[in-house]
Design a protein around this nucleic acid. Structure first.
Length: 329
DNA sequence: AACCTGTAGGGAAAAGCCCGGG
DNA sequence: ACCCGGGCTTTTCCCTACAGGT
């Protein structure tokens, strides 16, 4: 693979004189380490260096003109996408990466990279496993105290953000904002194939799979594929025989939470779905839908040989099994 | 024909958590 | 070094469709 030549300026981070002086010796050493690491990593994967003496650059001597600009607060660089202004081109470049998603600082594994040098230390903790803030209830540990605080709300049930329309509360502000769309009907994510709109981006992404036929989750036992991980997990239970939902009245167990809810109604006698024609009630909307065919006369199942229609799939199957029906339509 | 049991799939909403900006 | 808010991913739950058995 041919690599373009790179220069020190392509990869280094620019500090003001004041910024550099604010760094203690350990941070200056860290900066130097990171720069050398980047240099070695790029060299390892085949980049050539147009300039040399990276080590010397890393000693970080500052130019007088930069110092002067930091004194006056003069801002000379503007980014055209969001009009934020910056005192230095280097700050502009750093900001631009948040738009372009360019990730300049790569860690040793070349797996994860960063737009901000200040987050390298945080990322390093993910490799060293350093997570000083541990949840005393579940043992889960976090890099930052604030992350632990947020996690703790999953145990305490603390939900400080309340919807002023329905009173429902949420653990985070962003979740409340999302919830509010259920009241406003705001659906900013529209499918460009069928025009259907969704309140959440992830739900649109999932919907798009119904057009593309993409089914990334495959069962390793039978090869059957699913569009969502959750549906694969439910399917897997048909192989393992896992039935986590047990009825405490009859002891019968079920793989699906959905069906378990329905089963419980056979004990309670609850039949919330009522036919408005006959008044007959059913424990699930599925049953009701099929029952309604007895009134409408709807016969959606048609024999591909003789064209005869049936209300019930099983009636069609029985019909097709009979040897006398072999004439094409 | 009608009902019951069970699985699969689409979608809405919420939960968990990561990341960028400050 | 840390907090906050936005947003991405994952999970949960509901509804519908349908297959197969009684």
């Amino acid at each position: 693979m041919t690599k373009n030549a790179v220069t020190y300026d392509d990869v280094h981070i620019d500090f003001t004189w004041e910024e550099w002086n604010l760094l203690d010796q350990s941070k200056k050493t860290l900066y130097k380490d990171v720069m050398l690491e980047t240099y070695r990593n790029l060299t390892t994967i085949g980049y050539n260096w147009e300039d040399h003496n990276i080590e010397e650059h890393c000693q970080h001597s500052r130019k007088h003109e930069r110092h002067e600009r930091s004194q006056t607060g003069e801002k000379t660089s503007e980014y055209t996408q969001c009009t934020t202004t910056f005192a230095y081109n280097s700050h502009l470049q750093k900001h631009e990466r948040t738009h372009t998603r360019e990730k300049l600082y790569e860690c040793n594994e070349f797996v994860k990279a960063f737009g901000h040098h200040s987050h390298i230390q945080m990322h390093r903790k993910t490799h060293t496993g350093e997570k000083p803030y541990e949840c005393n209830q579940c043992g889960k540990a976090f890099v930052y105290h604030s992350h632990l605080q947020m996690h703790k709300r999953t145990h305490t049930g603390e939900k400080p953000y309340e919807c002023n329309q329905c009173g429902k509360a949420f653990a985070s502000h962003s979740h409340l904002q999302m919830h509010k769309r259920t009241h406003t009907g705001e659906k900013p994510y529209e499918c460009n194939q069928c025009g259907k709109a969704f309140a959440q981006k992830g739900n649109l992404q999932m919907h798009k799979r119904t057009h593309t036929g993409e089914k990334p989750y495959e069962c390793i036992q039978c090869g059957k594929a699913f569009a969502s991980k959750g549906h694969l997990q439910t399917h897997k239970k048909t192989h393992t025989g896992e039935k986590p939902y047990e009825c405490n009245q009859c002891g019968k167990a079920f793989a699906s939470h959905n069906y378990f809810q329905m089963h419980k109604r056979t004990h309670s006698g609850e039949k919330p779905y009522e036919c408005n024609q006959s008044g007959k009630a059913f424990p699930s909307p599925s049953y009701l839908q099929i029952h309604k065919r007895t009134h409408t006369g709807e016969k959606p199942y048609e024999c591909s040989h003789c064209g005869k229609a049936f209300s019930w799939m099983c009636s069609l199957r029985k019909h097709e099994k009979k040897s006398y029906c072999r004439e094409p339509l």
